[in-house]
Amino acid sequence: MIAALRKELLLQWRTRAQAIAVFVFGATSLLLFSFAIGPNASALRQHAAGFLWLALLLSSTLTLAESFHAEMEHRALEGLLLLPTSPRAIYYGKAIANWLQLALLGIALVPITVVLYDAATPRLGSLILIILLGTAGISAPGTLYSAMTSQTTRGKQMLLPLLLFPLIVPVLLAAARATSLLILGDPMEQTASWLRLLAAFDAIYWSLCGLLFDRVVEE
């Protein structure tokens, strides 16, 4: 699994131009969302957390859709499966690599949000924790569904969001609420319960998707 992860990270480093493109896409969507609200400072601050997570979610479909691209292009998935590693190791390598990439993307989008929406928070550590937990929730099912949709011949672009978005409603809800509480103040100390919900989602999907992945790639 370590080897699989190292391979993924190397691959992502080599295609870093793509990660930059995804970041620009995310930043552009944040800019567009701010135009949808207009120059109303309090409304902007109110919606900042939700828009940050929406931007992250939309960008994540780009990252995830590309994550099996290399394997599909050179029919390398069959080759990987022939190796004496379990499909599970391949899955977790891929999912962790996607998670890291999405978490970095999320952290990179934070300054943009702060500037555009005037949404600063003193609790940076908690914010990074929320981003880590939230992107983990997107990455686990996202990697599994990406393995499916990249093997289909038709409808690739459409199927991934169609399958993924309903599933990660709780992630969006919990992460956006928790982030919003950090920005707007948390008088009733509710952030922790949202973090627990995110952690529960992550625990369920990281184990369930790992269990089911070999059924998705087997011939």
């Binding site: 599994l144 309903p166 409603v169 809800l173 369930l208």
Partner: peptide
């Protein structure tokens, strides 16, 4: 596989 994954979401969505 997708059905199992979608169904596992039910309690989490409910609580959230």
């Amino acid at each position: 596989v997708a059905t199992i994954i979608a169904y596992a979401d039910v309690p989490i969505v409910y609580y959230s």
